[in-house]
Amino acid sequence: MISDLPQDLEEEILSRVPITSLRAVRSTCKHWNGLFKDGSFIKNHRGKEFLAIKSNGSQVCLMSINLHRNQPIKRIGKTKLEYTSRFIHCNGLLLFVTEEGNITRLVVWNPYLGQTRRVEPRRVYGQKDVYGLGYDNNNNHKILRLVYRFEYNVTQELYDLKSNSWKVHPSPSAIVYQPYTGISVKGSSYFLTKEKGEEVVGNAFFLLGFDFTREAFGPRLELPYLSDGREEYPKVLSALREEKLVVLLRRRVYTLEMEIWITDRVEPNAVSWNKFLAVNMATITGFKYLVYARRGLFVDEEKKVVVFSEMTAYGPHNKTLSCIIREDGYLKKVDLGEECSSRGPFVCSYYAPSLVQI
Rank of each mutant, 00 (worst) to 15 (best):
Gly209Val: 13
Thr104Arg: 08
Glu257Ser: 11
Lys303Cys: 09
Lys74Arg: 08
Thr28Trp: 05
Val201Pro: 00
Cys90Thr: 07
Glu198Asn: 00
Val147Asp: 04
Arg294Val: 12
Val306Lys: 06
Lys244Gly: 00
Asp264His: 11
Thr263His: 06
Leu277Met: 15
Val107Thr: 15
Val130Ser: 08
Leu248Ala: 10
Gly329Thr: 10
Asn137Cys: 14
Val279Glu: 02
Phe217Leu: 09
Glu338Lys: 15
Leu256Phe: 13
Ala278His: 11
Ile19Lys: 03
Ser309Lys: 02
Arg250Ala: 15
Glu82Gln: 12
Asn56Ile: 10
Ile13Asp: 04
Asp335Val: 10
Ile260Leu: 06
Val236Phe: 03
Leu95Ala: 01
Arg343Leu: 14
Thr20Ala: 00
Phe298Ile: 11
Leu161Gly: 04
Lys167Ala: 09
Ser163Asn: 15
Leu331Asn: 09
Phe308His: 04
Asn164Phe: 06
Thr193Arg: 01
Ser238Gly: 12
Ser354Val: 06
Lys235His: 03
Ser21Ile: 00
Leu192Cys: 09
Gly218Trp: 02
Ile88His: 01
Val176Gln: 07
Tyr351Leu: 01
Arg149Glu: 12
His169Ala: 12
Asp4Phe: 05
Arg86His: 14
Arg251Ile: 12
Asn102Gly: 07
Val108Ser: 07
Ile13Gln: 03
Val266Gly: 05
Glu259Arg: 10
Val356Leu: 05
Glu231Met: 11
Thr283Val: 14
Gly126Trp: 02
Cys29Ala: 13
Cys90Leu: 05
Val347Gly: 12
Glu11Gly: 07
Arg214Met: 11
Lys78Arg: 09
Leu245Thr: 11
Val124Ala: 13
Glu310Ala: 15
Val154Lys: 01
Phe36Ser: 00
Tyr225Val: 14
Leu226Gln: 12
Met1Gly: 15
Val168Asn: 08
Tyr190Trp: 01
Phe287Glu: 10
Ile262Leu: 12
Thr193Gly: 03
Ile324Ala: 05
Gln357Phe: 06
Leu321Val: 15
Val246Thr: 08
Asp160Thr: 14
Val60Pro: 01
Ser55Met: 03
Val97Thr: 14
Thr28Tyr: 03
Gln178Tyr: 07
Gly101Pro: 08
Ser58Lys: 12
Ser238Pro: 03
Ile143Leu: 08
Gln7Pro: 04
Asn44Gly: 05
Asn66Lys: 08
Glu338Ala: 13
Glu199Gly: 02
Ser165Leu: 04
Phe41Glu: 01
Pro111Ile: 02
Gly202Phe: 06
Ser341Asn: 15
Phe205Trp: 04
Arg117Gly: 10
Arg145Phe: 03
Val356Gly: 03
Val307Tyr: 01
Val97Ser: 09
Val124Cys: 11
Gln357Thr: 14
Pro345Tyr: 06
Ser188Glu: 00
Asn138Asp: 13
Glu257Met: 11
